[in-house]
Design a protein around this nucleic acid. Structure first.
Lengths: 100, 100
DNA sequence: TAGGTATATCGGGAAAAGTCGATATACCTT
DNA sequence: AAGGTATATCGACTTTTCCCGATATACCTA
């Protein structure tokens, strides 16, 4: 776990918001046709639409969050689904409580 | 609590390190003449020396951490002592566990 | 194979953060 | 009051981040 990389990933309003959305997908996204976002996540297009930024920016943001370990992704056909990685948040929460 | 401001404050190697030092001052700093760092904190000069950056940079960093709520400061004579604000870390740890 | 859709990557211009040296401020001592 | 020490603030330069448009890649369907 590279905490510095994680904190950098969290240092952006839109990226923070995306994480909040992905915490409760059913409250923030329309139901998807080919995937249950409870288990596999939400596709890039839906996140992009909600964020109101360009596709390239949102794709960048998601891969940044994934590189930091906060998100996981699954490719299914032409879609990439992103979802929270709960373990990372627990570890980070712990780091904050015990190390700094 | 402005989480975005907090995460920005945490997005720097030296600032993260300062927080780790201030978590256990007795393990990282020499005893001070005029103050007990367990209660009042560590003065800027000692932190600067350990960080190896200029005085102005470290002063900036400390005030940034304080603005974010992570540190508290006390002025005594010509010294300013900085110490952890434990409540802020608990709140942040909680935010990470419950909101994102 | 050709065209359509979803996502990723690349290159760049603008804005913000990192870090410094110089200077200002505050306080202490004589 | 004058000089010394500790910290804060300012201005500038460099590096990084933000966010875009354009293009590439991957996959699907007819």
């Amino acid at each position: 776990m590279d905490q510095l990389e994680i904190f950098k990933a969290l240092s952006n309003k839109t990226r923070l918001q995306i994480l909040q959305w992905l915490k409760e997908p059913e409250n923030h996204f329309a139901k998807q046709d080919h995937a249950d976002f409870e288990t596999i996540g939400v596709c890039v297009g839906q996140i992009q639409q909600k964020a109101g930024l360009t596709q390239s920016t949102v794709s960048d943001y998601l891969s940044m969050l994934q590189k930091a370990g906060l998100l996981e992704s699954t490719r299914v056909g032409q879609w990439t689904y992103y979802r929270r990685n709960p373990v990372a948040f627990e570890a980070l929460s712990d780091f904050i409580k015990t190390a700094i």
